[in-house]
């Protein structure tokens, strides 16, 4: 009986991995900015999740749990040691390996500069921006992952964006990717 449970679970866990690996990879890669570190972090996270699978039970969403494990694995790595700087050619190689971009020059440049700029932020601000701005999660979802109040996520995002704005300002007019959201500015001005 136990064997059946175990067999069933291992199949199920493979499905979990399959469903979430790309998203977990994106979170880790963007948070750490280093493909090797990201691979280690995601592997550690999935193994940890596998070992502690029973703690999924009763949780609202396994995705939140998985994201939390991955983000914590990334934050642990960032705290334990300063992640080695990523050479531009490594990121370019990784990008080429993974997915050739339609407009490689412009998008690659923007991606590399954004990645480099993110590394200048404190870990908590980086993690918040990765989840909210890069992954597109709601503040509430990000707060659940980071296990902090929503206001804290907003504050971290605000401070992070304030630091990034001057660093990335030169990209604003260089790419179609950056369309300044003037309606939002007007909305804010008008309340």
């Amino acid at each position: 009986m136990l064997t059946r449970h175990i067999e069933g679970d291992t199949t199920a866990f493979s499905e979990i991995v399959k469903r979430h690996r790309d998203r977990m990879w994106a979170v880790a890669l963007r948070t750490l900015g280093d493909p090797d570190e990201a691979a280690d972090a995601v592997q550690d996270a999935f193994v940890s999740a596998y070992r502690k699978a029973e703690s999924f039970r009763g949780d609202a969403a396994v995705t939140t749990w998985l994201h939390r494990i991955v983000v914590n694995a990334c934050l642990d790595r960032m705290r334990r040691k300063s992640v080695r700087p990523v050479a531009d050619d490594e990121l370019i190689e990784a990008a080429e390996r993974d997915m050739p971009l339609p407009d490689q020059t412009a998008e690659r440049e923007v991606s590399l500069e954004v990645t480099a700029a993110l590394k200048l932020l404190p870990a908590d601000q980086r993690a918040a921006l990765v989840l909210v701005d890069m992954m597109g999660y709601s503040v509430e979802d990000a707060a659940a992952v980071l296990d902090v109040p929503a206001g804290t996520v907003k504050s971290r995002c605000a401070r992070g964006r304030a630091k990034l704005a001057p660093i990335l300002s030169h990209l604003r007019n260089r790419s179609d990717l950056t369309r300044v959201s003037s309606p939002k500015g007007a909305q804010l001005r008008d309340g």
């Binding site: 990879w25 954004v114 701005d133 890069m134 990034l164 990335l168 604003r172 300044v180 959201s181």
Partner: peptide, 18 residues
């Protein structure tokens, strides 16, 4: 400029796990 930061971040393409 702050809004542009959000757009820049969201424009970074997501790659599949190798």
């Amino acid at each position: 400029g702050l809004a542009a930061v959000r757009e820049l971040l969201s424009a970074v393409p997501m790659t599949a796990m190798p």
